[in-house]
Design a protein around this nucleic acid. Sequence first.
DNA 1: GAAAAAATGATAACTTATTATCAGTTTAAC
DNA 2: GTTAAACTGATAATAAGTTATCATTTTTTC
Lengths: 130, 130
Amino acid sequence: MKHHTRQRQAIIHCLEQAGGPMSPQEILILAREKVEGMGIATVYRNLKLLEEEGKVRELVLPGEGARYEKSGLSHHHHFFCRGCYKFFCIEGCPREIISMVPRGFALEEHEIVLYGRCRECRDYRPDDSV
Amino acid sequence: MKHHTRQRQAIIHCLEQAGGPMSPQEILILAREKVEGMGIATVYRNLKLLEEEGKVRELVLPGEGARYEKSGLSHHHHFFCRGCYKFFCIEGCPREIISMVPRGFALEEHEIVLYGRCRECRDYRPDDSV
DNA sequence: GAAAAAATGATAACTTATTATCAGTTTAAC
DNA sequence: GTTAAACTGATAATAAGTTATCATTTTTTC
């Protein structure tokens, strides 16, 4: 990576504005507001480059494929909204997690994902939903 | 589902013996010890049938594709071993989770996954590992 | 502005997990 | 044992996400 491009800047901007980790598709849609006609391959290419540079972190969360967030954020977890299919970063981390580790097991990391509905989606449900 | 088959019994047996949710591949390998030559399609077919009957539950956990565990287990979480790539059920659940929900969000479910190394894999690392 | 390097968009190719197809086999009821 | 329905194994097909290819465009350096 040597050149600055409008596309790359738009992707970085998306991730900086984001309230949570984003999928490549989400990034594409948002970044297209700045760079009309941007292609999905460009998103993947740049996410990979940014990840190699340590500017972006790939998260593996349940279902929904990989998500990306800018690196350097303090320890946090995520809330997944089943209405809009977005992830939100949330604060806090229960200390009790340590006591859940089975005897003899070595804990390296942990992931907590809450599922439910965000503020906007809480009261709205489309007619065809169960 | 009307007939009892050796294949189906083997799959159920696997899930009952399991210490954690299993992938279709893991089930296949284990079930083949009882039914030589069993095919992967049979595993998928039966998991789906058992799920429809409510005997088995599909879990969506980070990475690694879907896992299955028998239903009716009490609330619990999982530990993923990076040595043997297996999931283990673990006890306990931090109450603090509720305090992590952003104001106005509705919590429906949650998932906690611990990552690290199980007792067997803790001290063993293959030469080629990082 | 010209030239070289880097990046892009479109799309084909690839991956991995899962599902469908189908001829042959097994099960359950008689 | 016969028969019909259910099931199986092998494998082709599918689906979704990601990566590779390549002609063209953009960026940087001079």
